[in-house]
Design a protein around this nucleic acid. Structure first.
Lengths: 283, 283
DNA sequence: GGGAGGCATTCATAATTGTGAACGTTGGCC
DNA sequence: GGCCAACGTTCACAATTATGAATGCCTCCC
């Protein structure tokens, strides 16, 4: 779970000369302030497990209470925020559920991957994911649970740093090197002792990934879990990838081979569907 | 319960989708305009199947193009909107998946219902739903398919008029009559020939529902499908209900009995969990 | 019981944003 | 090829919003 503490720490209220904001545009020039703040509030509330008071949000986001007051009430009148019994603390409201469905329903990659992911999960018996690159992070867009009891933590909508996941490395490997370097954060945050934290070491790993055709994660985001991932190649895939997560102890060489085969076939199937669908959409 | 009721006024301004009114719907007095418009854009994009240009949105929402320009670009810079290849048409962006899934993850009712819904689906072998009342509509928050295919969030987020669903009628029946009358729209839109469209006929149905303890829908939203629904009673349930949908032809009297039994047991189980969890949350 | 701290809310003014008309571009249609 | 319509974008001014200090309410703690 995400930290309960107000560690969400998004954006930069007043960072002087923060020259490192490629993927998280904070101080965009022509940005509409109250629009941006509306989105910031939603992002904050979605990144934490507790409800927030206006004062909480003010502290965390660096926005004056009095400014938040109007925003928060506009949002809760519309059903985007919900107040607790006391009316003083807020969480995400019902409207968010609507947006979720709509986004996933209409996403070409997600909808065309459904059957392939189903059969991939059945074939391998392991947890499979579909994820998409968003800046330097991977967003999980679909998931099929392992039939084995072992539950690993991940859920649709969650984000992980791309450099620490097989999905992320598979997706990054499809980009030109300069773009990867421009995208990656200065510091590669470690999630486990195995996480690659050196940029040049990561670039080597991506080179291997390109050669192999698939990405490998050996407990780099969760100890004891290994992942294999193939990127989707179709342009319409928008840097998505599919992966299979297996407890490392269960990952024998034969298992690797069979999982890779299944993954590769699934990726090919999805890419085929995507090519079809996007071609038809253009005309 | 203090008289802090934040629902002091019928603030719910307009219907979420099909906004045909050109002039901005009775916006609350203290609403922040650009915040509200940000939300309107998200709602619009989630209610349609196509991408929209700025001019489209301008026409539909009644907002000047020039005003939308800033909003739309702020939103897409943040990843809340995504442009198509040409950069001229927009759809929901990745950020929506994150926020919306977070909502479902953190919702007490949804998370505490999980195992009960699983076993309910298995026991009955039919499609089961969890829904919540939002104004005069029911929002689907969870679903289990009759097959074992775990199609979690597929229909989640959909909305249907409360008066045309078993879920909605079960939830409405927990409200005092005056509140139901104040909530219902003037015109009860028919979805099938069986939909109840007369307000007094609906009130009778709700009275029966209260007596029986469960709501019945005989093809009132989908021809050939019958539903049975129990409301969750716990205060923390926020007017949610669970239902079981069965093809009418398959619904023999014995089947009704067994489904009702299973539903009732599941509702009781969820209510128990809710009582526990919310009691602990208060302290 | 009284005081301190935290909270949401309100207010006038300064800063930002919304607006409609104008511009440059694109794509389709005679 | 040239006209027309539609689109995204820009601009200066008018309208709206953001701001920090002030208010009143509450709970917690001495």
């Amino acid at each position: 779970m995400a930290a309960t503490s107000p560690a969400g720490a998004p954006s930069e209220p007043s960072s002087p000369s923060g020259s490192s904001a490629p993927s998280a545009p904070g101080a965009a020039s022509g940005a509409v302030k109250s629009c941006l703040r509306t989105l910031q509030v939603l992002e904050l509330l979605s990144s934490a497990d507790d409800d927030f008071s206006i004062a909480d949000m003010s502290r965390i986001l660096g926005i004056p209470k009095s400014s938040l007051h109007g925003l928060v009430h506009t949002m809760s009148d519309r059903g985007w925020l919900a107040a607790d019994r006391s009316g003083l603390r807020f969480r995400l409201g019902l409207k968010n559920a609507v947006v979720a469905m709509s986004f996933l329903d209409r996403d070409l990659v997600v909808s065309l991957s459904k059957t392939a992911l189903d059969s991939l999960a059945e074939l391998t018996g392991e947890t499979v994911h579909l994820g998409r690159l968003d800046g330097d992070e991977i967003v999980y867009l679909a998931k099929r649970e392992s039939t084995h009891a072992l539950r690993l933590y991940s859920a649709v909508g969650r984000r992980l740093p791309a450099h620490a996941t097989a999905l992320g490395k598979a997706a990054l490997a499809t980009l030109p090197e300069e773009q990867v370097l421009a995208t990656l954060p200065e510091r590669l945050v470690p999630l486990t002792p195995n996480t690659i934290t050196a940029r040049d070491r990561l670039m080597e790993d991506l080179a291997e990934t390109r050669q192999r055709g698939y990405a490998v994660d050996n407990g780099e985001n969760t100890e004891g879990i290994s992942c294999l991932a193939f990127a989707l190649r179709s342009e319409a895939a928008e840097h998505s990838a599919i992966s299979c997560s297996v407890p490392t102890v269960r990952l024998t060489p034969q298992r690797v081979t069979s999982v890779l085969e299944a993954l590769s076939a699934a990726a090919g199937k999805i890419d085929g569907l995507l090519a079809h669908a996007s071609r038809r959409q253009i005309e």
